[in-house]
Design a protein around this nucleic acid. Structure first.
Length: 198
DNA sequence: CTTGAGCGC
């Protein structure tokens, strides 16, 4: 598969800025994948929608956004992360966001939530060893009301072509989990105990 | 090993 053939195929999805087939340095053979730069996110999404899993040149191809390079968003964003990740403003009012695209950074998350009142901070979680996004993150807010309204407004909204899966974030276990061992401490405890023995 | 449920260092 040559780059001009790829160009022809991907132009059906929109404006193709660049096509780069990756060749093996020593054997000079194609490594079987390529990078196609589309004119916009929308056109990239369209290309993915149209061609991912389809037959191109007699083979089933995978088409998606490129993997985040090792080092995670540091390499993607450079010094700009100051405002997002390193200075993540924590708060008890947090949203857990899942189903994030691999290429979405903390800054990208911030952009998506920019219109939400009371927004404090966003953070995408990266694997320490591989440097790749783990596909989820957190969004902190000033108040419980702000979390509530942002969750309602943004849940299911598509970011990078994937619907956000939003939930109230679980408490971060800073101290040992409050496990009550005896039934007396809870009014429901006696009911629970009696239902077991019954 | 390109991976899709999950709760961060």
């Amino acid at each position: 598969m040559t780059s001009s053939q790829l160009l022809e195929v991907f132009q059906e999805a929109g404006r193709v800025v660049n096509v780069e087939v990756v060749y093996d340095r020593v054997t000079d053979r194609s490594r079987g994948f390529a990078f196609v730069t589309m004119g916009s996110i929308e056109e990239a999404n369209e290309a993915i929608r149209m061609f991912d899993g389809s037959q191109v040149g007699g083979r089933t191809v995978k088409v998606n956004f490129p993997e985040v390079p090792r080092g995670g968003e540091r390499e993607v964003m450079g010094p700009k992360i100051r405002s997002s990740n390193r200075g993540f403003v924590d708060s008890p009012h947090k949203i857990y966001a899942g189903n994030l695209g691999w290429g979405l950074t903390s800054q990208g998350l911030r952009d998506a939530f920019a219109d939400q009142p009371g927004l404090l901070s966003t953070k995408v979680i990266y694997d320490r060893n591989s440097g790749r996004s783990r596909g989820f993150g957190f969004i902190s807010f000033e108040s419980a009301e702000a979390v509530e309204s942002a969750l309602n407004a943004m849940n299911g909204v598509e970011v990078e072509g994937r619907p956000l899966r939003l939930n109230l974030a679980a408490e971060r276990a800073s101290s040992p989990p409050p496990v009550q061992s005896n039934a007396e401490s809870s009014p429901e405890g006696s009911e629970l105990a009696s239902s077991i023995t019954a």
